[in-house]
């Protein structure tokens, strides 16, 4: 098991009251499994990603990644674990404007403390894998939306993660490009044996997932069998 959330509770202050973002959530994602997470806005999807990735600490519960409990780590240890074992793919890719495609990936290696010389070769391999080897020197503004998202995916894989957390990667793409990105994520998940959790609003991509989970009001609404999540 790569990712396991046990009885996670997380709240936010909301004016005079407290908003329960995650309420006693149990969740698992195994190595080689591509899981989609759907639900209305405010249902807790992004909070679950933040907690699973060690960006936010839950009020209670355990977050296990390959058996390591994130809630027992210091902030510095969580940073290091994120750099080495967790890859994030963000909405609209969130690439740095000053870096070309290959440097976006080399930055991830630099953050993870990997040697930059070796990182260059791996970055080019990954760009080749996502079909962008010819555009390795281009900056984000010289790439299309789909290309930027594919650079973001390659960047998330630089640290050789065990867990890939994907936050609405198709929100700025048309259906054809969005489907291509989701298929790429699924294929990479299976090839590399990653545990991938993808938040999406778009139900048409659920057929591509191994398993789909719905959230509502901070709870996992259901965890049906593969490709029956709608």
């Amino acid at each position: 098991m790569t990712l396991e959330l046990q009885q996670i509770r997380h709240t936010y202050p909301d004016g005079d009251r407290t908003l329960v973002a995650l309420d006693s959530v149990d969740f698992r994602a195994a190595a080689g499994e591509f899981v989609t997470l759907t639900g209305p806005s405010g249902s807790g999807k992004s909070t679950l990603l933040a907690v699973a990735g060690g960006l936010a600490s839950p009020e209670s519960g355990r977050v296990l990644i390959d058996g390591t409990d994130l809630t027992e780590l210091t902030a510095r240890q969580r940073d290091a674990l994120r750099a080495q074992r967790i890859g994030f793919v963000f909405q609209q890719s969130n690439l740095l404007g000053s870096l070309n495609a290959v440097d976006q990936l080399r930055l991830a290696a630099h953050v993870a403390g990997l040697p930059l010389r070796r990182a260059g070769a791996r970055a080019r391999d990954l760009l080749d894998r996502v079909g962008l080897s010819a555009k390795a020197e281009r900056r984000p503004h010289q790439l299309s939306g789909g290309e930027r998202q594919r650079v973001g995916i390659a960047r998330a894989l630089m640290g050789e993660p065990a867990l890939l957390l994907v936050d609405e990667p198709t929100s700025a793409l048309d259906h054809e490009r969005g489907a291509a990105v989701v298929r790429l994520l699924r294929d990479l998940t299976h090839e590399a044996g990653l545990a991938t959790v993808m938040v999406t609003h778009d139900l048409q991509y659920l057929d591509l997932a191994d398993r789909s989970v719905r959230m509502a009001d901070g709870r996992l609404f259901s965890e049906p069998s593969a490709r029956t999540g709608r």
Binding site: L55, A83, F88, F90, N94, V111, G159
Partner: peptide, 16 residues
Amino acid sequence: TPDLAVVRAMGASSGY
């Protein structure tokens, strides 16, 4: 700041 948040999420420490 948005770029810095992304790099922090990638695992960079504040010190980095």
